[in-house]
Design a protein around this nucleic acid. Structure first.
Lengths: 336, 336
DNA sequence: AATAACTGTGCAATCGTTCCCGAAACGATT
DNA sequence: AATCGTTTCGGGAACGATTGCACAGTTATT
């Protein structure tokens, strides 16, 4: 259907060989100025574009990188993607975005698909369901460059970029304490995720440093990371059935934070006097909420950029890289 | 770096020819059951995956489609993308997402890049800056299948999928009128966009059918579709300097609607008594706003699915398609 | 004038896969 | 015994681009 002209077409039309045309287009020194002009002019005329598949086949690289995130509708991830694209595109790489919707099955399928598509590297934030990472280890062992960001695994030794989740959680929880709340619940994504552990640590530290005890009845997990609204509703159900109700909740995730607000609204608890919420979120509309919401903002764009820079380092490295970095970027507390 | 095993490797290891291996893997009738089993077992063992670049080169197709939208952070587009992916992935196609950020320059760059990447087809919603479409016409004339959705051009003759923008605008404006408002302003994206024209029509129709006059001082455009916040602020400045202030505003776009709320908040006008807002938006958090916001919801997921189905029809057509459809899907008014 | 050096171009292999031919090997038919 | 058909497999070209090597033709050097 959509035929582009090839080097062969140009060679035939101009009575030259394909090698001469190729060299002329790459501005090789061995081609005379006259021939070069002839070729480049004609190539422009027929809209010549090198076939990327042929190049990829020859060079054994595709100049593309794969992204695996939970969902693009999440503002944290869409901002991270913008950061990734800003670097990747400027370096001539195409970006293929895939979504797991927090499902391990889809994560595996996406990763397999990207590998089969022969991407040059992978940028991943794990799904909420992902506990084991053998599907990634195998690819990594076979030499595929991978950089993790946000939700990172412990097992695989490569570059990892995260926000300072413990600090962010500590700040948010401390803020709730300073507002006078003593019984602060914590709702988080699945317990095994790195971000969940780190944010739990920050939450716990804030409580203990302020002389408050950690009540495990107040700590709830959502194994599907808020993709299933019923999950969140039953968590609230459990919290509301406690003999002593929490006064505030620290929520550890973008989607969860929004989900909590919805549940509170449904339960008719969405008013300043009933329960206070603070949570991780990169949404740009939080200031329009009522009651408002104190939030922890992650430098998603910067994280995306940094992750991409490190990935391209791996991809374009002349020799195998053995020293890996673990970068931790600062979060920001927006008090509302 | 990342080497997969090839048909050649398998052939060498098994003492067969590449043709035999290829045929065995494709379950050709000319290969004996024994050889087939030998080959498929070994292929599984070494994790054989056909090289997509080699396939693309041979088949002259890439099994990938390109998407061009304003930005994935927009809920309308992220929902549309989910619809697109649901169809494309199930049919074996990879999706490459690009963002214009409402810039014509980036739209041209993205389209060129996708064409050079030899995608099999294109799914586009035009940027706010796009007035002429020669960059698309050229590709379309050369045979690249394209389907437009949401923001569509008039010039190019192909499948086009939109929501019923006029109806949605009519409904929203009528609702504002029923609430008792008579002076209703209208803020829209750049005037030349199809969606802007259609939504303006619906707005105008609602006013005239209710015996209200159309005041052109009340109609404002944002040529950058809300990507530049100052643009929106100066629009408000102009509205607020009128001798007779509007009582309500109908906003014709997701990003613009959110932007308006921010400006109103900044101007301290975000309260139920000062000004009412209704607008197009697919955001899932509108019900958390205060004051709340009546919104027009577009069936973004369905639009994405439909657009993809029509695109795959074009891509996989045996003979050139000459009959094109213009599908218009219903919007939904959420009164809050 | 003979050789060397350089300039400009073509040939052919290569990347991984498919597919059109051709060709053994074997049994069946005449 | 010669022919035919089947089954099963291999050889090699093709897709588009790059690149080491070879080889004319020209100019410079001795």
């Amino acid at each position: 259907m959509f035929e582009s002209s090839t080097i062969k077409d140009i060679a035939r039309a101009l009575g030259l060989s394909t090698s001469t045309v190729s060299r002329a287009l790459r501005d090789s020194y061995e081609i005379s100025a006259g021939t070069k002009k002839l070729v480049t002019d004609y190539a422009r005329k027929v809209h010549y574009r090198p076939n990327p598949n042929a190049l990829s086949l020859k060079e054994r690289k595709s100049k593309s990188i794969g992204i695996v995130v939970s969902e693009v509708a999440n503002h944290y991830f869409s901002q991270a993607i913008n950061g990734i694209e800003s670097i990747a595109n400027s370096r001539g790489y195409t970006v293929i975005i895939t979504q797991t919707h927090e499902s391990l099955e889809r994560e595996i399928a996406n990763v397999q698909h990207l590998a089969a598509r022969s991407v040059d590297g992978l940028l991943i934030s794990l799904s909420a369901e992902t506990e084991t990472t053998s599907h990634l280890e195998e690819l990594h062992d076979r030499g595929l460059p991978i950089v993790f960001f946000d939700r990172i695994p412990e097992q695989i030794n490569t570059h990892k970029i995260t926000a300072d989740n413990a600090k962010g959680a500590f700040d948010a929880t401390t803020h709730l304490i300073r507002c006078g709340h003593k019984r602060i619940a914590h709702i988080s994504s699945s317990a095994h995720l790195s971000i969940s552990k780190e944010r739990l640590d920050g939450y716990t530290k804030a409580l203990t440093e302020n002389g408050l005890s950690v009540d495990h009845q107040y700590i709830k997990n959502c194994p599907h990371g808020g993709m299933i609204q019923e999950e969140l509703e039953s968590v609230f159900q459990e919290l509301m059935e406690l003999e002593v109700l929490p006064e505030a909740i620290f929520v550890a995730g973008d989607r969860l934070t929004i989900g909590c607000m919805h549940v509170l609204k449904k339960l008719n608890l969405l008013n300043p006097t009933s329960i206070a919420i603070a949570g991780f979120s990169n949404s740009d509309v939080l200031d329009l909420f009522n009651p408002s919401l104190t939030s922890v903002f992650q430098p998603a764009f910067d994280m995306g950029q940094l992750a991409t820079i490190k990935l391209l380092e791996l991809i374009e490295a002349k020799y195998p890289v053995t020293e890996f970095e673990r970068k931790v970027l600062n979060t920001q507390l927006f008090i509302r």
